[in-house]
Amino acid sequence: MATILKAEDLEKVYRVGKVDVPALRGITLTVQEGEFLAVMGPSGCGKSTMLHLMGGLLTPTKGRVIIDGEDLTAASDARRTDIRRRKIGFVFQRFNLFPTLTAEGNLRLAERIHGNGADDPDRRREILSMLKLEDKMHHKPLELSGGEQQRVALARAVVNRPAIVLADEPTGNLDTESSALVLKMFRELNDRFNQTIIMITHNPEAAAACQRIIQMRDGHIV
């Protein structure tokens, strides 16, 4: 089994005015290909910060992140953006779809940004059918339920075959029923496509669906 993600002694200190706010205090973590990992912990313990560092949206104060063999921390800003484009799919709590575009438009935009060779009609069809989105593609986000929007966001995150999906409380805005459905789809993605996933969650049931759970507290893994 190949290592997809490696975080070494990650530290992050935010500077607010003249005050240093330490958010991560040395995180070391290895994620294997095909793993479905849950991250739990109280609010403010640094989960989102860790996810942003792993996705190259932030740079660490100290430590390294290596994703699919590429060192994110040593890379320039443009290079990190490029690694994000090729290797990472984000899913957010608040869906973050483009409201003026249809579901189809949101997917196409992701494909266009990803660029060359992204179009794989078979995989695309399979994903949409698995997420039960085939008849939703011409709707705009506001015409969809929360669960449907999150499924579109999930489709958008995986349509370009990212090495890893980083999900920050993807069911945090959903009712129980929708949550269960979306979680089931994360599971299926992991099962059928061997998709590597790191998912932050507060929901013990959601975490129970994962192969591995890491608990965080005060910027540490406990």
Partner: peptide, 16 residues
């Protein structure tokens, strides 16, 4: 602004 953040999270370059 948030949509630009999404574009960036999706890996859209400055040029894009």
């Amino acid at each position: 602004t948030r949509e630009i953040g999404i574009l960036k999270a999706m890996g859209a370059s400055r040029r894009y």
